[in-house]
Amino acid sequence: MASVLLVDDHPAICFALKVTLEKKGDLHVTTSNGERLIQQIHRDAPDLLLLDLELDGQDGLDLLPRLKQHFPSLSILIYTNQPAALYARRTVQAGADGFVNKSLNLDALESVCRLLLEGYHCFPQEAMELLRNDRPAPQSSQTLLSRLSDRELTVLHSLMRGQTNKQIGDSLSLSNKTISTYKVRIMKKCGVDSLEPLFKLLNEEVES
């Protein structure tokens, strides 16, 4: 029996996924909200990890490389609400083995999990093509946004959704002042005087 560890801080999502993945009887699912995750993986030794990018007090993009460093043979599937256009390529580079959006039908998600357990990789086609060709996306918006680090992109995306500095800081375990510093750094890197043009580029990437 294959074991799956689901890392998500939404109990309803955890319950629905556990029921879906265990219905055939050959998968065993345990859950985690992200706290003491490395210790839990050492203890449970799962075959597959489903990781949300948005965890309370943690950034999944920061967590992913550390997980692959500690557990290089562990298959990791990113399961998130974040748009693939912005995050799929970054998660590949950080060591993930697959990327799916939470809008995906649960039965389809089960199929993806089984593919990863068999040693396959599952990413949106565009992300795989970009990596295969080893080149940045042709759109000028993607080229501009690629200047940002994973953490800067996470902060920018949260700001676009209307979150305050305090809300973002709390979710990432950072201070308000640090978030303000990120905002200044983001504008400087992209050569803009306000965040509005970058919000527009983010929306274009999501809608494309």
Rank of each mutant, 00 (worst) to 15 (best):
V7Y: 01
V7S: 02
F15M: 11
F15I: 09
A16S: 14
L17G: 06
K18R: 14
K18Q: 15
V19C: 07
T20L: 09
G25V: 08
D26I: 13
H28D: 12
H28C: 07
T31V: 12
N33P: 03
E35Y: 09
L37Q: 06
H42F: 13
R43Y: 13
R43I: 05
P46A: 03
P46S: 01
L50W: 02
L51Y: 03
L53P: 00
L53N: 01
L53H: 02
L53K: 02
E54S: 11
E54I: 11
D56P: 06
Q58H: 11
Q58P: 00
D59Y: 09
L61Q: 08
L64W: 03
K68M: 05
F71K: 08
F71H: 12
P72Q: 02
L74K: 08
Y79W: 11
T80L: 02
A84K: 05
A85V: 06
A85D: 08
L86N: 04
R89Q: 13
Q93S: 13
V100Q: 03
V100H: 00
K102P: 05
N105Y: 11
N105M: 10
L106D: 03
D107Y: 14
A108M: 13
R114D: 10
L115R: 15
E118C: 10
G119H: 10
G119F: 07
Y120K: 15
C122D: 02
L130M: 09
L131E: 14
D134Y: 07
A137S: 14
P138Q: 06
S141T: 11
Q142N: 12
Q142I: 08
L145H: 02
S146I: 08
S146D: 12
D150C: 09
R151C: 05
E152V: 02
E152T: 06
L153V: 02
V155P: 01
L156M: 04
M160G: 14
M160D: 11
T164S: 15
N165K: 09
K166A: 12
G169N: 07
G169S: 08
S171L: 11
L172N: 01
S173N: 15
S173G: 10
S173A: 14
I179M: 04
Y182D: 02
V184F: 11
V184N: 15
R185F: 06
K188Y: 12
K188E: 14
K188I: 08
V192P: 04
V192W: 08
E196W: 13
P197D: 07
L198V: 04
N203S: 15
E204V: 05
V206I: 15
V206M: 14
S208P: 09
S208Y: 14
